[in-house]
Amino acid sequence: MLDIDYAVCFSEANCRLFTRLKKVFVLINLLAGSAAMTTLLSKNATIAAIAGIVVAMISMIDLVYDPGAAAAAHMRDKQAFLSLRSRYSRLSLEGGDSELAKIKMSATHGLQSLARPAHNENLRHHGRKEYLVELSRWEQLVKLFA
């Protein structure tokens, strides 16, 4: 059960992070696009060019990494793990482990920086605080955004 709950925590954290990244990209594109149009109409070519470059760069990053699709994939993984969790009591230990392995094989790869925060969250949820691991500063920062 701990393994399934960990997978749910990990998928959920990745889903939240990628959803927030997508929103940030959309916000930046909207602001930079508006700035480009406004400065273009006011005949300030330098600021319009800078805003245009920002829009192009954010659009390219969004196209290459596609955080919206990553968030959707992690949401599907979370749903698959939750489905297994609901059926787990009716399965044998080997059957449950086999089902978990099948889901993991097709699951989307998440950010490794969220692995230990998800581990700690799962242990807290199950009252096993004595097994918490210390997070690096980078993991704490990524956890903050997720």
Rank of each mutant, 00 (worst) to 15 (best):
V24E: 08
V24L: 15
V24S: 08
V26H: 05
V26R: 07
L27H: 11
L27W: 09
I28L: 10
I28C: 10
L30P: 08
L31A: 07
L31I: 09
A32R: 00
A32D: 01
G33W: 07
S34D: 12
S34K: 09
A35N: 06
A36M: 11
M37P: 11
M37N: 15
T38S: 15
T38F: 13
T39R: 01
T39E: 10
L40N: 08
L41N: 08
L41P: 06
S42I: 14
S42N: 15
K43V: 12
K43Q: 15
A45M: 12
T46K: 15
I47F: 07
I47N: 01
A48Y: 00
A49V: 09
A49R: 09
I50K: 05
V55R: 00
V55Q: 02
V55E: 02
V55D: 00
A56D: 04
A56T: 05
A56F: 10
M57C: 15
M57L: 15
I58E: 00
I58L: 07
I58Y: 05
M60E: 08
L63H: 09
Y65W: 05
P67K: 01
P67N: 02
G68D: 04
G68Y: 01
A69C: 11
A71F: 03
A72V: 05
A72D: 04
A73Y: 03
H74A: 03
H74D: 04
M75A: 14
M75L: 15
M75H: 15
R76G: 05
R76P: 03
R76S: 08
R76C: 04
D77M: 05
Q79C: 09
Q79H: 11
Q79T: 13
A80P: 00
A80G: 03
F81W: 04
S86V: 11
R87Q: 13
R87N: 12
Y88A: 10
Y88Q: 12
Y88L: 04
S89V: 11
R90A: 14
R90Y: 07
L91F: 05
S92T: 04
S92C: 03
L93K: 14
E94D: 07
E94K: 06
G95E: 08
D97C: 11
S98R: 08
S98P: 03
A101T: 10
K102T: 08
K102R: 13
I103W: 03
K104Q: 14
M105H: 12
A107Y: 03
T108Y: 05
H109Y: 10
Q112E: 13
Q112V: 13
S113R: 02
L114W: 00
L114P: 02
R116L: 09
P117M: 01
N120K: 00
N120T: 05
E121V: 14
E121K: 15
G127I: 04
G127F: 06
K129H: 14
K129T: 13
K129Y: 11
L132M: 07
L132K: 10
